[in-house]
Design a protein around this nucleic acid. Structure first.
Lengths: 232, 232
DNA sequence: TAATCTACCAAACACTTGTTAGGGAAGGTG
DNA sequence: CACCTTCCCTAACAAGTGTTTGGTAGATTA
C-alpha cells in the first residue's frame, strides 16, 4: 500500500493567507514575528492563558475550539485575537512558560552538592511541586508533545527532553557507581520508569485533594526506592 | 491526490433507469440503528481498523481526518463508509476489541488460585503482552479515554475501569493482609503507581526493540516490588 | 450471457474550523 | 471637551471537516 502524501507538509506550515499583508508596518523590528499593533496587558494575557490551559488539558488541544476557550473566558472567539496571534501561539506560550519554570527548579537542584539518591529525591519532589503548580500544562505536555516535536515551532520541546533525559541518566549512573542504586537493572528502563511514574500523576492529581505534593512525593519515593513488597 | 485515472469513456447523459430507484426504503422500523445495507468482509474491516488505529495513535483521534485514514489505506475518504458507519464507530470498535481481549487475559489470571504477589506478577506480565499486541489501541485508550467516558456510547470504558480498579485494589489488599506487601503505604496511591508504571510503557514501547514483553515485565516487577535502591 | 455482489471512486453536501476586518463602548489623560 | 488606549463585539471569510449519494469496474454466480 503505497501511502501517498499530498501537500500537507506537517512541518513549518505557513498559512497561505495571500491577499492582505499588513501594510501598517510601523513598530517592532523583531524579526518576522507577526504581532498585533496593540499592547494588551500581560495580566489579562496570563488570565486567558490559564483558562485556555484548563480547557486544553480537559478536552485535548485539537478537540478544543477557540470558541470554547472564548466561552470559558466569557467572550467571543474573535476577541481572543486581540491578545494572541493564533490558537497555536497560546499553546506554545503555555508550554514554554511551564518548561521555563520547571527548569528553574531543576537547575537549582542539579547545581546543588547532593549525592545521587538525594538528587533523585529532590528531583521527584520538585516535579510534584511543578505538577501542583502547572497541572494543566503538564497534562497538555504529556498528551500533545509527542506530535508537536515534529514542528519547528516547538523545537524547544526536543531540547528540553534531551536535557531532561541527560539529567536523569547521569543521576542514575552516579547512583550505580556509588553503590546506592542497583546495578542489575537496565538503566534506560529505570529512567523511563521513574520519569513516567512521576509525570502521569498529573492526570489524576487534583490540588487540595488530601495529599500535598510533598506527601505524594514521599510516598512515591518510598515505592520507587524500596519497592512495595515487604523486606525479608 | 491519489488519483489513479482510469478515465474510460464516461458515457454522457446516461439516464438512470426508472426501475431501480432508492432501495433504502426497506424496513428497519425499530432500533433506528443506521447500518449499511451491504455486507463488507470482516477481514477487510480488521485490516482497515488496524490502519486506522495506527493513525489514531500517532496523530491523536481528533487530529486524524478520515481522509488521512483513507490515504493510509490507499483509498478515498468516502469509501470508508462502505465498511463503517462513522469515524467514531471505528474508534469504538478499536477500543472495544482491545478491552475484550484484555479482559480475556485478566480473567484467566484472576480466576487462578494464586497468591497476591503471584497475581500481581501475572497481571503485570499479561499487561505488557497486551501492550505488545495492541500497542496502538493502548496508546489511543490512554490519550482519549478520559474525555470519552462522558459519552454514553463509551460507557463500557467506565465499566472496564471500575473492574480494573477493583481487581488491582483487591490484589493489593490481599497482599497487605497476607503480609507480603508493605502496610505503611497508601493503597490507592500504590494502585495508581502500579497501574501507571505499566500502561505508560505503551507510549515508548516498540515491538522488536531488544526487549520482549516478558523481559520488560520482569524488570518492571523487580523495580515495583523491590525498588531501585540497594538493600542495606 | 445476464444478474448479482463486493469494494471502491467521484462529487458534492452541510457544517465547523481558525482567523480577519471594522467598529464601538468605557475610562483615563491632555 | 477632544483624544487616545484598552478591550471586546459583530459579521463575515476560506479552508477543512465528516458524511451522503449515485455510479461502476471486476469477480462470482445463475
Amino acid at each position: 500500500m503505497p501511502k501517498q502524501k499530498q501537500s500537507s507538509d506537517t512541518s513549518t506550515s505557513e498559512k497561505p493567507t495571500s491577499t492582505s499583508e499588513k501594510p501598517t508596518g510601523a513598530g517592532k523590528a523583531a524579526g518576522g514575528r507577526k504581532k498585533p499593533p496593540v499592547t494588551p496587558s500581560p495580566e489579562r494575557r496570563g488570565e486567558l492563558l490559564r483558562i485556555a490551559a484548563d480547557v486544553f488539558a480537559e478536552q485535548g488541544y485539537n478537540a478544543t475550539t477557540v470558541r470554547k476557550i472564548a466561552d470559558a473566558a466569557g467572550m467571543l472567539a474573535g476577541s481572543l485575537y486581540y491578545h494572541f496571534d493564533s490558537k497555536e501561539s497560546m499553546l506554545e506560550e503555555i508550554l514554554r512558560t511551564f518548561l521555563t519554570e520547571l527548569w528553574d527548579g531543576y537547575d537549582s537542584v542539579l547545581s546543588a552538592p547532593l549525592g545521587p539518591r538525594e538528587t533523585l529525591e529532590a528531583l521527584v519532589t520538585e516535579s510534584f511541586r511543578e505538577i501542583d503548580r502547572h497541572r494543566s500544562a503538564v497534562a497538555i505536555y504529556q498528551k500533545e508533545s509527542k506530535h508537536l516535536v515534529t514542528q519547528t515551532r516547538f523545537e524547544y520541546l526536543v531540547e528540553s527532553q534531551q536535557r531532561f533525559e541527560k539529567a536523569w541518566l547521569t543521576t542514575l549512573e552516579r547512583g550505580v557507581t556509588d553503590g546506592v542504586f542497583r546495578a542489575d537493572l537496565d538503566i534506560r528502563l529505570a529512567y523511563r520508569f521513574v520519569r513516567d511514574t512521576v509525570w502521569v500523576a498529573a492526570s489524576w492529581y487534583r490540588p487540595g485533594g488530601g495529599h500535598s505534593p510533598d506527601e505524594i512525593a514521599r510516598q512515591y519515593l518510598s515505592m520507587v526506592l524500596d519497592g512495595i513488597s515487604v523486606r525479608t
